[in-house]
Simulated scan of single mutants.
Amino acid sequence: MAPPPPGTLWSPPSIAPMMAVPGPLPVPDSDWAFETKWDGVRCVLSTTGDGSVRLTSRNGNDITVTYPELQALGGELRGRGVVLDGELVVLDASGRSDFGRLQSRMGVVNARRAGRLALDCPVHLMIFDVMYVDGLLLLDAPYGERRETLSALGPSGAHWSAPSYVHGRSTQVWEAVMRGGLEGVVAKRLSSPYAPGTRSAHWRKTKRVETLDVIIGGWTQRRGAAAGVPGAVLVGVTGPSGLRYAGSVGSGLSEREQSELTAYFTVLARSTSPFTDPVDVAGAHWVEPRLVAEVTASEWTRTGRLRHPVWQRLRPDLTRLD
């Protein structure tokens, strides 16, 4: 697509991001493209051609002031009116996204503070789609054509890039993601249009999860249930100094399992925390650390907590009730 005449100003539309549905990798995979799933926050970037940049969140909030290091992208795209879709991340030394560090950047509305944080903890925008270029809406264009347009724009800088995708070969892509310790894979139909604000089956996300055994050391009351019924369990892992707190797990617990745990907790109740480190959880109840559970999580946070933990099952083969 040829650049517009110098001095042209555009009025790019406000476009809500298209979202993926969770699910397994597609089989067969010949009609699909595969991208790395980055652990960050969604960002839609638009330019008017005069060098300025506007950033909006997935919910449509203006976050331009929060990430000043992305303003330079407006200079690279000067003269072009575009709307781009991507993920804001903070990369560690190995090139993996670090959500814990990104959290220090989120929600900052003071320009001076945002500028300081941009120097200490810069973000990187992973651009993976383009929905508008120089007055032309690309929503009906297939994904493959939109990616060709994005490639022609050539956004590449210290704080932004447009990582390539892989056509087919889902098994190899998944193995590479596992080896690299990345969050997962997003599969996109090559023929898919861009559907603003919708969660479309044309895009599918598959997340890497870690399965591990944890020890239950406490619980919190289930809201609206009878007294003694747990809504979440407080879990830990054994460390050099004892049982280290790893987080609260409530997602995935069935009513049958809650009832079973209620009976166990009555027998195992204690008055003090079995964890060696502080547990800042309101309304915590403590139990003897004898029950072992299997949970899944996306990763460990920098503070040693499980991220997105989900209950799988109690492990009676590892549990000690004697």
Results as ranks from 00 to 15, higher is better:
11 S>N: 14
11 S>T: 07
16 A>K: 14
17 P>N: 09
18 M>I: 04
19 M>C: 00
36 T>P: 01
39 D>Q: 09
39 D>S: 04
46 S>E: 04
49 G>C: 04
51 G>P: 01
61 N>M: 13
65 V>S: 07
73 L>T: 11
75 G>S: 13
78 R>H: 10
78 R>L: 08
88 L>N: 04
91 L>V: 03
97 S>C: 08
98 D>L: 03
99 F>W: 02
100 G>F: 02
107 G>M: 05
109 V>Q: 02
110 N>V: 04
118 A>R: 04
118 A>M: 05
121 C>E: 05
125 L>H: 08
127 I>F: 07
135 G>T: 08
136 L>M: 07
137 L>W: 13
140 D>H: 13
141 A>S: 14
142 P>Q: 15
146 R>M: 12
150 L>N: 09
150 L>W: 13
155 P>V: 05
160 W>E: 08
161 S>L: 06
164 S>D: 07
165 Y>R: 10
170 S>V: 04
177 V>A: 06
186 V>F: 00
194 Y>R: 12
200 S>C: 08
204 R>H: 02
205 K>S: 10
208 R>P: 00
209 V>A: 07
210 E>Y: 12
211 T>V: 11
212 L>G: 14
214 V>Q: 09
214 V>L: 13
220 T>F: 00
221 Q>G: 01
224 G>K: 12
226 A>C: 02
227 A>I: 02
231 G>K: 08
253 L>I: 10
258 Q>V: 02
261 L>A: 00
261 L>Q: 01
262 T>W: 04
267 V>C: 05
272 T>E: 15
277 D>C: 02
282 A>R: 15
289 P>F: 15
292 V>H: 08
294 E>N: 00
306 L>V: 04
312 Q>V: 12
